[in-house]
Design a protein around this nucleic acid. Structure first.
Length: 490
RNA sequence: GGCGGCAUAGCCAAGUGGUAAGGCAGAGGCCUGCAAAGCCUUUAUUCCCCGGUUCGAAUCCGGGUGCCGCCUCCA
């Protein structure tokens, strides 16, 4: 079984062949830390988190690096506006980023380097590029000369001539070509600055990634990822400078995730429709956000709407509803499911994990994987129905299927809560949003129970309707009545 | 102007040559005092349009239409 990935470099699916068997080195462009993380960051970060988890689940030794860009124009501008130092601003948003990542169940990368921690490596690469004739200095700035690099444009599929024909191009007469980009920037007074052979300055945007990826993963590594928008110019420039400096291939596979729109509009400052991760997780379970993201293919555009999130949330309820039944059957969570180990087909034939791998091997097709997951949910619900409540065990096939489901959850970052905790959280959200005392609900349930006992169904139904209007749904179970969050329909 | 992508049921979304996954919503049924949850059945003779290739196309080719992204900071 081989994994196929869509490589932006070449624009086709290719077999994933690691540079060294069994080992994968991947680098993903992290955020520029000058503001809070929005849902677009969430998608990128979730997509690569799932890829990371999957490769590990498939037995690869993975080393995953995601950087922070902690020096650039936006940070400087913002810090000046706020009257604080760049370090303080960056530090604040790095901390916030970590809080957000934890909230959405991200596995931390193996390394999270800072651009400012790698100035000497950056200076070294810039020097190398000048030495080799790919870069030139002009009044303290150092530019990369795109005309000296014949392969410039190979990632984004652009040709210099085409771009020059139509693009709006800044006029900087020191540049040999309008598309030359800055490797090292002379600092203005008050800006962060480091000593360099070209005077006091700071790194350009792209060079940091060349320096950090080379340092932690080697000059050639396996996977380089990021958002689609980074293809040009960021990754195009990065690939040019890295390959020119080191004289070898940079990354084998370039993976780019698609964008998220909000109600079919691009997120933008002017529309004021930026959705921050910290706000989303206040309203929804973090796994609902993850499920929303993995429900479509990572390269497709994704439209965020309230309804789409509500559907993702309902889907998650369905999954946890099954887990709750499983917990009840086993009287235990997590259930004691003897892991089927090599996951060969058991008697009743669970090849769920294998089919999941088939989907994921095809360019990380998580949408197809979700279909499999829901089929498994249905089949397990059916099995539990057929056995009847109180039955203490599930067939070996059922147990293996549950084990597979949880294993899939480990990859997608779903089903990581216990069902009890999950529904408790959902209930708590109802209580908090309406300032309801749970004891009051219990009292209502007792009143309804008495009414039902007395066959006063009119009263019983009236109580239930009253609760339903408050988004509280009752379920009469053999062992008694429980309540769950509901949609408020009466 | 250049480069690239997308168009599948009411909505979301898989499916790259062999006869349309899955979720939500809807309808009917089982269960229930009635519900809820769960299960079962059902909902696209058809995949934007027009041609072509093929025994066979949502899938390949040509043309058209409509959306969208990038080319400037952006995940």
């Amino acid at each position: 079984m081989t994994i196929k990935v869509y490589n932006t470099l070449g624009r086709c699916k290719q077999e994933l062949v690691p540079l060294r068997p069994g080992r994968i080195r991947m680098y993903v462009c992290g955020p520029t830390v000058y503001d809070s993380c929005h849902i677009g960051h969430a998608r990128s970060v979730v997509v690569f988190d799932v890829i990371y988890r999957y490769l590990k689940a498939r037995g690869y030794d993975v080393y995953y690096v995601r950087n922070f860009t902690d020096v650039d124009d936006k940070i400087i501008n913002r810090a000046n506006e706020l009257g604080i130092s760049c370090e303080a601003l960056a530090g604040q948003y790095i901390d916030e980023f970590h809080v957000d990542m934890k909230a959405i169940n991200m596995r931390p990368p193996d390394m999270e380097p800072l651009a400012t921690g790698h100035i000497s490596q950056i200076i070294e690469i810039v020097g190398l590029l000048i030495e080799k004739g790919y870069a030139y200095e002009a009044q303290g700035d150092v530019f990369f000369s795109v005309q000296k690099w014949p392969e410039y444009g190979k990632l984004s599929g652009r040709r210099l001539e085409d771009m020059e024909a139509g693009a709006r191009v800044e006029v900087d007469h020191r540049k040999h070509s309008p598309f030359d980009f800055v490797l090292w920037k002379a600092s203005k007074p008050g800006e962060p600055a480091w000593e360099s052979p070209w005077g006091k300055g700071r790194p350009g945007w792209h060079i940091e990634c060349s320096a950090m990826s080379a340092q932690y993963l080697g000059e050639t590594f396996d996977i380089h990822g990021g958002g689609k928008d980074l293809i040009f110019p960021h990754h195009e420039n990065e690939i040019a400078q890295s390959e020119a400096a080191f004289g070898k291939t940079s990354a084998s596979y370039w993976i780019h995730n698609g964008f998220i729109n909000i109600n079919q509009e691009k997120m933008s400052k002017s529309l004021g429709n930026f959705l921050m991760i910290k706000d989303i997780v206040k309203k929804w379970h973090p796994e609902a956000l993850r499920l929303f993201i993995v429900s479509s293919h990572y390269r497709s555009p994704l439209d965020y709407t309230r309804q789409a999130m509500a559907e993702a949330s309902a889907s998650l309820d369905k999954i946890y509803g099954l887990l709750e039944r499983v917990a009840h059957v086993f009287d235990h969570w997590p259930p004691e499911t003897e892991d089927s180990g090599d996951h060969e087909k058991s008697d009743s034939g669970t090849d769920l994990w294998q089919r999941f791998c088939d989907a994921m091997d095809d360019d990380f097709n998580t949408a197809r994987a979700m279909g499999l997951l829901f089929e498994a949910v249905r089949s397990l619900n059916r099995q539990i129905d057929e056995q009847g409540a109180g039955s203490a065990c599930l067939s070996p096939g059922g147990r293996a299927r549950i084990a597979d489901m949880l294993r899939i959850g480990d990859v997608l970052g779903l089903m990581e809560d216990s069902p009890a905790r999950y529904f408790q959280m959902r209930k708590q959200a109802v209580l908090d949003s309406q300032e309801i005392d749970p004891e009051w609900i219990e009292e209502k349930i007792r009143q309804r129970k008495d009414a039902r006992k007395a066959k006063d169904f009119a009263l019983a139904d009236q109580i239930r309707d009253e609760l339903q209007a408050l988004h509280i749904t009752l379920e009469d179970r053999p062992e008694g009545t429980i309540w769950k969050h509901g949609d408020g329909k009466t």
